[in-house]
Amino acid sequence: MIDLIETIFDTTIRAGTPILFGTLGAIICERSGVINLGVEGLMLIGALAGFAVTSMTGSFTAGVLAAIFFTMIAGMLHALITVYLKGNQIVSGLALAMLGVGVSALFGRSFVGKGLDGLSRIEIPLLSKIPIFGAMFRQDILVYLSVILVVLIALFFSRTRWGLYLRTVGENPGAADTSGIPVTRYRFWAVALGAGISGIGGAYMSLAYTPFWVENMTAGRGWIAVSLVIFSMWSAPRALFGAYLFGGINAAQLQLQAHGTSVSPYLLTMLPYLFTIGVLIWSTRRLEKGASNEPASLGLPYDREDRK
């Protein structure tokens, strides 16, 4: 029984981690006032770049760095359109999602069917021996990185100058501008950096979670990440909670399949999406009740000379 719970807990973390990266990236982006609906595309690009470079060089580090690099480039495209050219953020995000699906499929052709030895796990002495929760401490480096990132991002926003400025840019770019904060530069780099972090989520998919490459392997996780941003109220620690909640649903679903329930697997795979919809409704209602952390200028391009 303990074994089963540990397995579920382990899967929870592993299934939640790509979503966590995706959500963290989107949080940084949205905190600056830019919506990024392209996370799905970014994660696919990250997944392919990570897989391709790792299988060519044999180095996971190179793979992850490549994932960050290419998703940042893609993110900069979104940033260029939305921040500098004031294009519609929703359409640009969709374009990014499409581009990611297409580009990763195009360049992934030669990698289909190849496998990798997934990222190895690192056991943390003592802690990993704790029953059930020990699973948390028998993970690979990217899982640890994701948790460290949660802490770093939370500290960044609450304790640092740049964090304060970035929050201001997302809340009221006019106020930021008149205080001498370069709005467009902050937004551009927030979008790019956020994209890079979302990209790691993709790389985690193809390097650790299911270490091979197939077209469209993220299967909607990018969209779930975007929804979880609202659930997390733009806060990194809550994103961790949301992502693991999702991971838990996924783990439970996989266990049910493995233990041969009579329920069709096609119905079970719908569960995470249903769950996300429920979460989105619930968290939007909370937002409406005034507990709003939503960046006030989210989705609005900033043009200094627009007259009110």
């Binding site: 495209l77 359109i81 294009g87 519609n88 969709l94």
Partner: peptide, 17 residues
């Protein structure tokens, strides 16, 4: 791959924006 035309669609959208 079939989803190749997504590349074209995505790029076209970017340019239009």
């Amino acid at each position: 791959p079939e989803s190749f035309i997504n590349v074209f669609q995505g790029m076209l959208l970017f340019f239009l924006l």
